[in-house]
Simulated scan of single mutants.
Amino acid sequence: MKNYQYLVREAIIEKIGRISKVLDKQDKILIIRSAWRSFEHQRLLWETTFASFKKKHPEKSDGDIKQIISYFIAPPTKSMHVTGGAVDALIYDKIEDCVMNFGTNKGLEIDLSKKCYPYYPNISPEAKKNRALLINLFEDEDFVCDLKEYWHFDYGNTIWAIEKDKEFAIYGPIT
C-alpha cells in the first residue's frame, strides 16, 4: 500500500528495541513486516487476499473463501493491528544473508496454511528452532503469539488481555 506507516504504541517501540538488541548480538535483525493498520488498509488487504484466493480456487464459494482466509487475515473490523498493539515480525540472519526459514516463508513471502500455526509439528527442525527464537523473544517482552500465525504478536490489545487474563485491554482502535 502506498505511503504505509509503521505506527506502534510507545511501549511497543521500547520492547522491539530490546528484542533488536538481543538479536544484534546474534548477528540477526528483527524485521517488522506490519504494525498499525488503518481500517482502510485492513480492508484493502482483505479484499486483495480474497481476490487472489478466488482466482486460485474458482471452485470454492465466496463463503468458503471468506472462512478460509479469515484464519489468517482478520476482516477489516476485527483486526488487532488497528490498536497499534500488534506487530508482524520475522528475523533476518546477517551471516546467512537471508530471512530465516520459519517453515512457510520464502523470504518475506508467507504461504498461508495450517503450517503457520506457531507449534505446527510437521515442519523442519530448523524452522521449529527459528520459530522458538522469534516467539520466545516476543513472549519475554510480555507479548502473546497469535494462535494461527507464528509471526503475529499482540500486546495491550483485546487478544493480549484475554490471553493474559487481564480485566481489560490497554489499547483500543486508533482511528
Rank of each mutant, 00 (worst) to 15 (best):
H152I: 04
H152Y: 09
K148E: 10
D154Q: 08
Y120M: 06
T158C: 07
D154T: 09
F153Y: 06
Y120H: 14
T77P: 11
I69W: 03
A86Y: 00
A86L: 09
Y117P: 02
H81R: 09
E96V: 07
L90K: 05
D140V: 09
K78Y: 13
E139N: 12
I91C: 04
T83M: 01
M100Y: 05
E139F: 02
W151Q: 01
I91L: 03
M80D: 12
F102W: 08
L90T: 03
D154L: 00
N130W: 05
N105M: 04
V99K: 05
D97Q: 10
Y71G: 09
S79G: 08
K114I: 14
T104V: 15
L137T: 03
G107V: 03
L90W: 05
D154H: 15
S113M: 11
D146Q: 08
K114Y: 15
L137S: 11
Y119K: 10
F153Q: 04
Y119L: 14
L147P: 10
H152N: 03
D146E: 03
I95D: 10
F143V: 05
K78F: 07
D88H: 04
C116A: 04
A86Q: 01
D93P: 04
P76D: 07
Y117A: 13
A132L: 14
I159R: 07
L137D: 10
K106P: 01
D97T: 08
I135H: 09
N130R: 12
P118W: 12
N101Y: 08
I159Y: 07
S113T: 11
L108A: 15
K129P: 02
L147M: 11
K114L: 15
N157E: 07
A89M: 15
H81E: 07
Y92H: 08
Y150A: 03
N101S: 09
W151H: 13
L90S: 07
G103R: 06
W160P: 08
C145H: 02
P121H: 00
G103H: 09
Y150M: 06
P125L: 11
G107D: 10
M80K: 07
P75F: 14
M100W: 01
S70M: 06
P76W: 03
T83F: 00
K106C: 14
H152K: 06
M80G: 09
N157P: 04
K115N: 12
D146L: 03
E126R: 07
P75W: 08
F102N: 06
H152S: 02
F102P: 01
D146G: 07
I123C: 08
L133M: 15
D111A: 14
N105H: 09
F72R: 03
E126S: 13
I110S: 02
F143Q: 00
C116E: 06
I91P: 02
V99I: 15
E109I: 15
N157F: 06
L108Y: 02
A89Y: 04
D97N: 12
D97L: 09
L137H: 02
C145Q: 04
D140M: 13
I110G: 01
I69E: 01
P121R: 13
E96F: 06
S70G: 00
H152C: 02
T83I: 06
D154W: 00
I69N: 02
K129N: 13
P118S: 01
N105E: 08
K94T: 13
A74G: 11
K115A: 15
Y117K: 14
P125C: 04
N105K: 08
K94P: 03
K106L: 09
L112F: 04
D93S: 12
M80R: 10
